[in-house]
């Protein structure tokens, strides 16, 4: 399939922009905001900090091996404790004691590089089990490079993280797909830029929205807020010289 050129701007919709909008006093509500029993959350605010640890491991091991390591560990964790959202950083940190019981030394060591980096950079509790040879500066750099690479949810790296989690959930029987609806994750990895990959990306994003619930409690947001506040304090603003 021919690869599409990346365009700088989204095209104008080929349907009336206000189509389907419902008037509510002085507001025109678009159809998507009228879906009942639906909460909208920000991916960058409340999901990305929870899954960026996957990016660190994908960088450390490489894509294929990284997916293997992560999915095996998540499967083991879910088999032992099915009601914990093990893919979420905040849940891993909150269940550090259970983690050290369920996983053996080698398995803990396999994921330590990521969680040690977070421990050193963000001083977040529950990660004492994670050890690493990284000094604090190196750990910070590791996290920073991962955030820079994986933050764009429309780009390939982020989608490989989400795909890894979906794959892990699927092999742990936490997620099932009807025939013909399995996202073509391979297309994201090997055929990025093609129509096939774009369809797979939409599928993966839709899956992540359905399967990454946010309970809205203060505790669940604590980590995400801490993550971004620390990043904001410890790095400077940057400017693209050629931007208008």
């Amino acid at each position: 399939m021919p690869k599409k050129e990346k365009k700088g701007r989204r095209p104008i919709p080929n349907y009336p922009i206000l189509e389907g909008h419902v008037r509510d006093k002085k507001k025109l509500i678009p159809p998507i905001l009228g879906i009942p029993q639906t909460t909208f959350i920000s991916t960058i605010d409340l999901i990305f900090p929870e899954i960026v640890w996957v990016g660190i491991l994908l960088e450390w091991y490489g894509l294929r091996e990284g997916i293997e390591v992560i999915s095996k560990i998540l499967k083991k964790l879910w088999n032992a404790q099915t009601n914990v959202n093990w893919y979420r950083f905040s849940e891993i940190a909150a269940n550090g004691d259970k983690l050290t019981i369920i996983l053996n030394e080698e398995e803990l060591a396999n994921i330590s590089v990521a969680f040690a980096a977070f421990r050193l950079t963000y001083d977040w509790p529950g990660l004492e089990w994670a050890t690493s040879h990284d000094e604090a500066e190196e750990a910070k750099r590791r996290v920073e490079l991962t955030v820079r690479k994986y933050a764009n949810r429309f780009d390939q790296p982020y989608l490989t993280v989400v795909s890894t989690i979906i794959y892990a959930m699927a092999i742990a029987d936490k997620m099932k797909f009807a025939t013909g609806t399995v996202p073509d994750i391979e297309a994201i990895v090997i055929d990025w830029g093609s129509d096939r990959a774009e369809m797979a990306a939409c599928s993966v994003r839709a899956c992540s929205m359905a399967f990454f619930p946010h309970d809205g409690s203060e505790e669940s947001e604590d980590w995400c807020k801490h993550f971004w506040r620390k990043n904001y304090q410890t790095s400077s603003c940057e400017w693209n010289e050629h931007a208008i």
Partner: peptide, 14 residues
């Protein structure tokens, strides 16, 4: 407004 290019700043406007 000018958008900060640092991804660690969540694309805030300055």
């Amino acid at each position: 407004a000018r958008t900060c290019d640092n991804p660690l700043h969540k694309q805030h406007a300055v």
